[in-house]
C-alpha cells in the first residue's frame, strides 16, 4: 500500500510544465477571444447607433415636409405672425439659412406653428398654437441629440412661385444618456436637410 501512493498521485495530477503550457495557451487565447468579441460588439453598437440617428432624422424630415406642404400658408419671423413680420413672399425679403433665425409658419386659419430646438434642450420640437398652452411636441427622443448650433432655418422665393422653407440640422447619438455626442471615435453624427415648398393657395 505504501508503494502505490506515490504512483497514484503521479497519475491523477498535472505536472508543473503541463500547467505552465495550459495557462500560457489560455493567456494567449482568452485576450484574443475577448478582443474579437469586443470588436464585434463595438461594430454592432455603431450600426445600431447609426440606424437610430438615421431613423429619427428621417422622421423629423418627413414630419416637417408633410406639415409644411399640407398646412403652411405664409412664413414669418415673429410670433404671433402678422403682415409686418412676414418674409419670403413676393414683396418681402428672403431669410438666409442660419442657426440664429427662427421662422414661424401660419396656416390658412391663422394659427401659428414652427419647428425649433427649445432652449436648454437638444431636441427638435414642433410648436403649434392649436395645441394650447403646452404646445410643444418633441420630434426626437432622448436617444439622439441635435448638435449645438446646427439647427438652421431659412426661406426664399423665386418670382411668383411658392416660397420654400429650408431646415438643416445635425443629429448625433446620445452616448450612454450623457447628453454628449461622445468622443471622436464613438461619435455617430449625420447631417439632414429638407426643403419644402408652401402649397399654392
Amino acid at each position: 500500500m505504501k508503494k502505490q501512493t506515490p504512483l497514484l498521485n503521479k497519475i491523477r495530477g498535472f505536472t508543473f510544465i503541463e500547467m505552465v503550457v495550459v495557462i500560457g495557451i489560455m493567456a494567449i487565447a482568452l485576450p484574443t477571444l475577448y478582443a474579437i468579441f469586443f470588436l464585434i460588439l463595438q461594430q454592432q453598437i455603431k450600426i445600431v447607433r447609426i440606424s437610430e440617428v438615421q431613423r429619427q432624422g428621417t422622421f423629423v424630415v418627413n414630419t416637417i415636409e408633410s406639415l409644411v406642404k399640407k398646412n403652411a400658408y405664409s412664413i414669418h419671423t415673429g410670433s404671433p405672425p402678422s403682415t409686418a413680420n412676414r418674409v419670403c413672399a413676393v414683396t418681402t425679403p428672403p431669410v438666409s439659412l442660419t442657426s440664429s433665425s427662427q421662422l414661424y409658419l401660419k396656416d390658412k386659419a391663422g394659427n401659428s406653428f414652427d419647428f425649433t430646438v427649445p432652449i436648454g434642450t437638444q431636441k427638435i420640437s414642433s410648436e403649434s398654437a392649436v395645441l394650447g398652452s403646452n404646445s410643444t411636441i418633441d420630434l426626437t427622443s432622448s436617444k439622439v441629440l441635435v448638435v449645438t448650433n446646427s439647427f438652421s432655418q431659412g426661406c426664399s422665393v423665386s418670382g411668383y412661385a411658392s416660397p420654400v422653407i429650408t431646415y438643416s440640422f445635425d443629429l448625433c447619438y446620445n452616448i450612454n444618456n450623457s447628453n454628449t455626442c461622445g468622443s471622436a471615435s464613438e461619435e455617430v453624427s449625420l447631417h439632414f436637410e429638407t426643403t419644402a415648398a408652401l402649397p399654392n393657395y
Partner: peptide, 17 residues
C-alpha cells in the same frame, strides 16, 4: 445611403428654389 439622401434633398431644394 445618408449621403445619397442628403444630395437628393439638396437637389430637390435647388429645384424648389
Amino acid at each position: 445611403t445618408q449621403y445619397g439622401e442628403q444630395l437628393s434633398a439638396w437637389l430637390r431644394a435647388q429645384k424648389e428654389a
